[in-house]
Amino acid sequence: MRLRAYAIHLFTAAGASLAMLALLEAAQQDWAMMAIWLAIAFVVDGIDGPLARRYDVRTHARVIDGTLLDLIIDFLTYVMIPAYALYGSGLLPGWTGWFVVLLIPFASSLYFADTRMKTDDASFRGFPACWNMVVLALLVIQPGWGVIFGLVLLLSAAQFLMLRFIHPVRTSRWRTVSLPVAMIWTGCIAYSAWIDFASMSVLTGIVAVTSAYLLLAGIAQQIIYESRSAALM
């Protein structure tokens, strides 16, 4: 059990190497390969948590703080690299790119340190700084810069609002839908990156719909179940 627990920490730490590979590709402005490495890192991040809980790494591998390790890697893959991609890809021109590349790390660093981040149902309180998912979806959908800029401002503010956002693996409510949706989203992003983000209306539509679900499902749950609780009272 001890060997398995430390092996899971090594698996989590591999996410840092994947982040470096994504950064190297971003520096070369190869957004397709950057997206593929970020998508692989996203899969690793989705798997390591359940494995860590199954093999109780807090008991059998206490020397390494798995939560802290996960947060360090998440800040690289979820925040820093996607922020640079928005700036360097030309999705946001001129001053808007400069503004966003400074805003996203600033707001997200505060969010990552917020002790109220997790809710009792394993969801997130406030937008969980999943900028990697946002940027990868934007590379596929390619909306106008005004839409992108407005979305970044909205989500940056949402990090500090009492809104719920699901974790597709850990949030048990609607997980039978959320997990397949997340897998479809990941597959579509990987395929889109593989074809160098060539325009495909069907692929764009699937990414748009699945992204909207993953972004809004927690808020929908919050509205539905809080209204039911209020009605019962």
Results as ranks from 00 to 15, higher is better:
residue 100 V to Y: 06
residue 104 I to N: 05
residue 86 L to E: 07
residue 87 Y to Q: 02
residue 117 M to C: 08
residue 102 L to C: 09
residue 109 S to A: 15
residue 108 S to Y: 01
residue 104 I to K: 07
residue 96 T to C: 00
residue 108 S to V: 07
residue 113 A to N: 14
residue 87 Y to P: 00
residue 120 D to F: 05
residue 106 F to H: 07
residue 96 T to D: 05
residue 118 K to H: 11
residue 107 A to S: 12
residue 104 I to Q: 05
residue 96 T to K: 09
residue 107 A to C: 10
residue 84 Y to I: 07
residue 113 A to F: 14
residue 78 Y to N: 14
residue 85 A to Y: 13
residue 112 F to C: 12
residue 117 M to K: 15
residue 117 M to Q: 15
residue 115 T to L: 14
residue 107 A to W: 12
residue 120 D to Y: 04
residue 90 G to D: 10
residue 77 T to W: 06
residue 75 F to V: 03
residue 77 T to H: 06
residue 83 A to T: 12
residue 104 I to G: 04
residue 78 Y to G: 03
residue 112 F to N: 11
residue 107 A to V: 12
residue 114 D to C: 01
residue 100 V to L: 01
residue 115 T to P: 08
residue 97 G to C: 01
residue 76 L to I: 03
residue 96 T to Q: 08
residue 78 Y to T: 00
residue 81 I to A: 03
residue 118 K to Q: 09
residue 115 T to N: 13
residue 114 D to P: 02
residue 97 G to A: 02
residue 111 Y to H: 15
residue 109 S to M: 15
residue 116 R to G: 13
residue 86 L to P: 03
residue 100 V to D: 00
residue 74 D to G: 08
residue 109 S to R: 15
residue 96 T to V: 06
residue 119 T to H: 09
residue 107 A to L: 11
residue 73 I to N: 15
residue 105 P to H: 04
residue 84 Y to C: 00
residue 121 D to G: 09
residue 84 Y to R: 08
residue 80 M to E: 03
residue 75 F to I: 02
residue 81 I to H: 07
residue 85 A to Q: 08
residue 92 L to H: 01
residue 106 F to C: 08
residue 113 A to T: 06
residue 108 S to F: 00
residue 76 L to D: 01
residue 100 V to N: 03
residue 94 G to F: 07
residue 76 L to S: 12
residue 111 Y to N: 11
residue 83 A to W: 13
